[in-house]
Structures are given as C-alpha cells and as structure tokens.
Amino acid sequence: MSDERRVAVVTGASSGIGAASARGLAAAGFHVVLSARRAERIEAIAAELRAAGQSAAAYPLDVTDRAAVNAFAASLPRCDVLVANAGGALGTEPIATGDPEDWLSMYQVNVLGTLHTTQALLPALVASGAGTVVVMSSTAGHQAYEGGGGYVAAKHGTHAIAATLRLELSGRPVRVIEVAPGMVKTDEFAVNRMRGDVQKAAEVYAGVAEPLTAEDVADAVVWTITRPRHVNVDLMVLRPLAQAAQHKVHREH
C-alpha cells in the first residue's frame, strides 16, 4: 500500500451493499479495509481484490463492541473515508407485539455501530484534510411503514447521526453523506429479517420487476465519495422505479 493511496473503511463488508461498495472503491483506486464479523467472507473478498491488482485488507470486527472498534481505529495508519454500512433488520411484527430484544439488536448495530465507528475514526478523518463519512441509512429512516417499527426507529436514529454530525463538523474538512436506499434485493437482508425463512423473504420482492441491487447502491456510494472535495451530497435517496414510496410498490402479476 502506497503512503499516498487514500484509505476507505467499509463496515458490514462481508456481503450485499458493503461488499459491493468495497469492490467499487477498490476499483476507484482506494486502499479498502473491509470489516465485518465474518472473517472468512471479508478475507475472501480482499483476496479477490488483490488478485485483480487492487489494494485491500480485511479486519474482522463487530461494530457493537466499542473496545474492538477502538483497537481497529488505532491499527490504521490513516483513514480518508468511512462507509458506515453495517446494519440490518429483524422481524415484521407490529409495535403491539414486537420483541424488545429485536429492537435493541437493531438499535445496537444500526445506531450504536455507526456511532462507535464514526467516533473512533473521526480524528483520522479530520487529520486527512479531506475526510468523508458515508452513513448508510434507508428510506425507512425518512418514512414509517406498518410492520417496520423497530427498523424504522433505528434508521431514523442513523439519519439523525448524519444530520447532526454534518452540523457539528461545519468548518472542518470532513463531508457527511447519507445514502438512503429503498427496496434493494440482496442475498441476505430479507432472509435475515425473516429469520431465515427464504419463502417469506422472496415474497418481499414478488412481482417487482427490478428492485435495486447492491451494485446500484454501491455505484451511488462511490459517486458521492469521488465528487470534488468541496461538493457534499447531503442526502441521496434511491428507489427502484417500481417503488414510488414505502407503501406504494408496483407489482406485476
């Protein structure tokens, strides 16, 4: 890794949007540090990128473990970009019957995970002279929907971090970008939300001709990061054409 190569950290990089963003940033010339809990997954992706002549490293990390996040931050010689992507949803129960443990789990990874990584890496991002934080929120962070209570609450929290941090960093050399995807079909998101029920996960996308892909969102992430340093994309909302709003989705039958 050249001392001149900019370093991009991507959390939740073992699959989906995180993995696609890591690939996109490596192709754009960054040294990418992939972090996630599943060591074998991120190590395989990092090896794939290095085999393609790109620069990448893997660092197993649970973003809800603050001591581990601090140790990770201390291990980096520099950090120019943080893509705070680690997150996820659990369940579709209404608020009346939702499990508080599910709510807590979603809050810990989506909100506190974003907080931990941002706080730990912020000194390095400022020191870079042109840092960028990309917060991966969701359209759920901007509009409520039935059966989404815990995830909606967590992603509203993620949105609040991005909006507040941008105000607090005014005058300092760090951009804060929020990317809020709508319906994205990845290998794991809906399956995890449905607790491993593949059929229920498939029903989420039933009749939707072209939901967003992880690569669609990653393309947006890389585009925002590679704008001139004086250009801050405060908020980018992405939805597939079939999804006009959280509750308005065209399904072909």
Rank of each mutant, 00 (worst) to 15 (best):
T186H: 11
A96N: 00
H230Q: 07
R195G: 09
G196I: 04
E252V: 12
Q243A: 10
V10D: 06
D62M: 08
V134N: 02
A244H: 14
D65E: 13
G196E: 12
S15C: 05
T117I: 12
R66H: 10
A214F: 03
I177N: 01
T118P: 13
E101F: 10
L165G: 06
N232F: 00
D62K: 06
L25A: 00
R239E: 07
G113F: 11
A140I: 02
S75E: 09
I95V: 15
H247L: 14
L112I: 04
A84K: 07
A52C: 12
G149L: 12
A28N: 00
Q54W: 03
Q199C: 11
D187A: 14
T97A: 13
A52I: 04
V9S: 00
I42N: 01
E43K: 03
M1V: 15
G88C: 05
E203W: 01
L241I: 15
A20C: 00
R229M: 06
L82P: 05
V176N: 09
L238H: 09
I161A: 06
T164C: 04
A58N: 15
L76H: 09
V32F: 08
R229I: 08
T226P: 08
V109K: 06
G147A: 13
A130R: 11
A86G: 02
V174R: 07
D197G: 14
G16L: 01
R66A: 12
